[in-house]
Nucleic acid binder design. Structure first.
Length: 568
RNA sequence: UGUCCUGUAGUGUAAUUGGCAACACGUCUGACUCUGAAUCAGAAGAGUCCAGGUUCGACCCCUGGCAGGACAACCA
């Protein structure tokens, strides 16, 4: 690794967003003793995706920028959906992105005791009551956004009765659904969330941390603000859909009445990316129904998928910074993400030659058992990465796409009679095309110009094109997994009445098994990045073995030739 | 017949107490090139959702519309 791998050297200017401005304003008036403390609060019910990366970069980025702190807190108030596997993957992903919560790892479940005491306090204050009605009844009494709700017949139970009932709920004396604890606020509020929200429900489920200790669990709204408060969070940043929860968030925190310190909820727009889906529910569906190989399938927008695909933490962080933070619900073009990886990998990736779709080339005037090693540059963007040797011999492979028997006007690669350069090697000329009985080209007979060794002719002769190649005998036969977008539609879940899976791209994975890569890659470790010259960026997959290396296409190089072809 | 939020080139973001609408990606030229990449130079593309108002001057302030989104899980 060189210095080029650090994000600082990518020259990205950190953008100032509206949240930074609000924090600056808070600091100007000395709010909360001038502390800045954020938190990243995932629910461990799935793997993190690129949208979470935006939130992680935002929250940890703010802590960095304002000399504050950022906690990692698992929002684990619903044991039926949460698992330790997810907890572990989330911690791995946050660290991989390059952020550290130090000793500030928390769980909402750390506060179950305190939350329960707080609920009891609300009951004693006459601000909470046990409702024996079923879910459907409570829901119907809530009214609609345009019609007020009606009060529960149990709303005015005595404090003593509520205390007793809640104690018995807690002791497991009632079945799930038998009753709930509700905050007594205002059934006529224009804000649905203020209409006596449920704050505790009975769940006889095993919790991944507290086991079977509890059979009542707090709802999100009853946990989040209080956890923020107890952790000393100053700016509680969440996505837009929680906007309408804010009055409730504030209401609970106000009931705490401990000091005048108040955490402040600020909402921003979640990330939407073209040609993918970004909801955990849908990603889980893709995994469970085996549309992908797992959460870390390289086609997934998960952080683990992107990592396996060959994305770097730097590229994701730069992407996050580039897209900015606002309250406008939008859709970011994946090309911006792709640009971010190319930008980073261009500066850092080892170059190597690899032939995906081989066509044999025989250098007829090269000695029968001839062999030599040619000098190649490891990364033209970084001199410090040095040079390597590439073996050359009589039988080579070139890319099938680089030869055309009857080339169109602007095709300036190899065709009968033309001369091209083999990168770092020689000029070669195609003299004869060998075909099988079906007329398919099977090999090319070419001659080389020994004087052009290294890639330049002493007579100053120019050549229109440079091809990548590989020595047939020395190349490493590999499997390469070519990826395309997972969905054909820009916005797969933006269609009413059509399931997002209808838009899946049947060709999103194309496994090629007869690829030949120069022997340099023999020493590669899983996840190592390469640029296969003229093709794209690839990394070694976890499935690789010594006998059979497997590479993933991270992203193709920009290709103006292909683009021009597509126009016609 | 509600409450809250949001409307700036194709996309995303800017415009620091109101002062010639800027940047990035994408697109298109051209230069350079041992990667049809990268790099470099340049171009096209919005008059800021609409209509009024205040002002010498409005993306910004005011009024009224319009459009889109969120909210009716014992999910988060």
């Amino acid at each position: 690794m060189t210095d080029n791998s650090t994000p600082e050297n990518l020259d990205i200017q950190k953008k100032v967003n509206f949240i930074h401005s609000q924090i600056t304003d808070d600091l100007k008036v000395g709010k909360n003793d001038n502390r800045v403390h954020t938190r990243f609060p995932p629910e461990p019910n799935g793997y993190l995706h690129i949208g979470h990366a935006k939130s992680i970069c935002l929250n940890f980025g703010i802590a960095e920028k304002f000399n504050g702190k950022c906690n990692l807190r698992f929002d684990d108030t619903n044991p039926s959906k949460e698992e330790t596997e997810y907890v572990e993957s989330i911690m791995e992903d946050v660290h991989w992105l390059g952020f550290d919560w130090a000793d500030r790892l928390y769980y909402a479940s750390d506060y179950f005791e305190k939350l329960h005491e707080f609920a009891v306090l609300l009951i004693k204050d006459g601000k909470a009551y046990v409702d024996d009605q079923d879910a459907e009844t409570i829901s119907s009494q809530k009214g609609t956004p345009t019609r007020p709700g009606i009060e529960s017949p149990f709303r005015n139970r005595s404090v003593e009765e509520n205390l007793d009932l809640f104690r018995r709920m807690t002791n497991g004396e009632f079945d799930e659904g038998a009753c709930v604890l509700r905050a007594k606020i205002d059934m006529n509020s224009p804000n649905m969330h203020m209409r006596d929200p449920i704050i505790y429900r009975i769940m006889k489920a095993h919790h991944h941390r507290t086991g079977d200790k509890w059979c009542v669990y707090p709802m999100y709204d009853f946990a989040h603000g209080q956890c923020d408060f107890w952790e000393g969070i100053t700016h509680s940043i969440c996505t837009l859909e929680f906007e309408v929860h804010r009055p409730l968030y504030n209401w609970f925190v106000d009931q705490l009445q401990e000091t005048d310190y108040r955490p402040r909820q600020i909402e921003f727009a979640r990330l939407n990316l073209t040609y993918t889906v970004m909801s955990k529910r849908k990603l889980l569906e893709l995994v469970k129904d085996k549309h992908v190989s797992g959460w870390d399938d390289p086609r997934m927008p998960t952080i683990s998928g992107l990592r396996r695909r060959g994305y770097t933490p730097e590229s994701i962080r730069n992407f996050s910074d580039r897209i900015g933070v606002t309250k406008v619900d939008g859709m970011i073009d994946v090309s911006l993400l792709e640009y971010s990886v190319r930008e980073h990998l261009n500066k850092t990736a080892q170059r190597v030659m690899g032939v995906l779709n081989p066509l044999k080339v025989i250098i007829t005037n090269y000695p029968e058992n001839g062999y030599e090693e040619l000098d190649a540059i490891n990364n033209p963007e970084d001199e410090e990465m040095g040079m390597r040797n590439v073996p050359f011999s009589k039988e080579l492979f070139i890319e099938r796409d680089d030869f055309m028997e009857n080339p169109p006007k602007k095709f300036y690669r190899l065709s009968p009679g033309t001369e091209v350069r083999l990168r770092y090697a020689y000029f070669i000329t195609c003299n004869e095309v060998v075909k099988d009985e079906n007329g398919n080209v099977t090999e090319l007979l070419c001659t080389y110009d020994p004087a052009s060794k290294g890639g330049n002719s002493p007579d100053g002769r120019k050549v229109k094109s440079t091809l990548h190649w590989v020595s047939a005998k020395h190349a490493v036969k590999s499997e390469v997994r070519m990826y395309d977008r997972l969905f054909r539609d820009e916005n797969p879940d933006g269609h009413k009445d059509i399931d997002f899976k209808e838009f899946m791209n049947p060709d999103s994975l194309n496994v090629i098994t007869d690829c030949y890569i120069e022997p340099f890659v023999k020493n590669a470790k899983p996840l190592d990045h390469f640029q296969f010259e003229r093709l794209g960026y690839f990394n070694l997959d976890l499935d690789s073995t010594k006998e059979k290396p497997v590479f993933n296409l991270t992203v193709q190089l920009r290709d103006s030739w292909a683009r021009e072809q597509n126009k016609n």
